[in-house]
Design a protein around this nucleic acid. Sequence first.
DNA 1: TAGGCCATCTGGTCCT
DNA 2: AGGACCAGATGGCCTA
Length: 265
Amino acid sequence: MNSLSSSLGRAPEHPRPLCVPGSAAQELPGSCHPGFSPVSRCLSPGAMLGHRGHHRPPKSQRDLSPEEQQELRRKINSRERRRMQDLNVAMDALREVMVPYASSSSPSSPSSPSSHSHHPGAPPGRRLSKISTLVLARNYILLLGSSLQEMRRLLGEVSVGVGGVNAGPVPRLLLAGGWPLISGPSHLLLSPESLLTTAASSSSSTPSHSTAKCAILSPGPVEAPLGAPVQWSSVGAPGGGSLCPCSVCRLPRFSHPSSVPRFPK
DNA sequence: TAGGCCATCTGGTCCT
DNA sequence: AGGACCAGATGGCCTA
């Protein structure tokens, strides 16, 4: 776990100021309210809106001394920080496999949180935002699914001509045909049936205002005619055509090797 | 300067 | 009881 934190680059030992009951010097302006009881002083309006409609610290917490409460709060904050950092590591891992959008500099460049700062339409050099990463990943999976289905269809056609699916060189020939990530993690090779189902169900719910034209963002891959597999290269691969006009795809095709620290000091 | 994105803090809830 | 997860709030950084 520590390895994950250390890989983030942002020194876990130097998190932002902690808001710990009883530690006024560390309080964030606006987030804590001196004068409240040690237990309730950090309540934000949102935090006050508990599902039960009232706030009452657990019995065990009420029984703790201020020092113990402070230590407990530090411990909880640390856990939450680490949890979010782990989530970011996973997000970076996802960005990496998001060819051709993946940022090579990101892996653990959380050390450069500033490079996060990006939004659709931003100039090249910015890595995918979290939401963009998730949206692209989803559609990327759908694209792979449709590609797999297409490949299976072609395999079927070719195998008929050469005497069967297990006929020697045919599969290898097709596999060498430039299918993106076709040899990637096996868990990505989902059943085309489930992908079709997913795509069909999601195509009606997918926001389309800015993504309808995008082969990556839209359910397009699944809807693509069978004889014409999606032209991946035209979407964002090096040497491909113009950038997709959608809001998410107007992103850098190539990762930037350098990243600017979010909090330069 | 506004808006987007992000990290962090926090309290509540659920699970083991 | 403790940890994981979640969602709201807050403030900082960056870009248009």
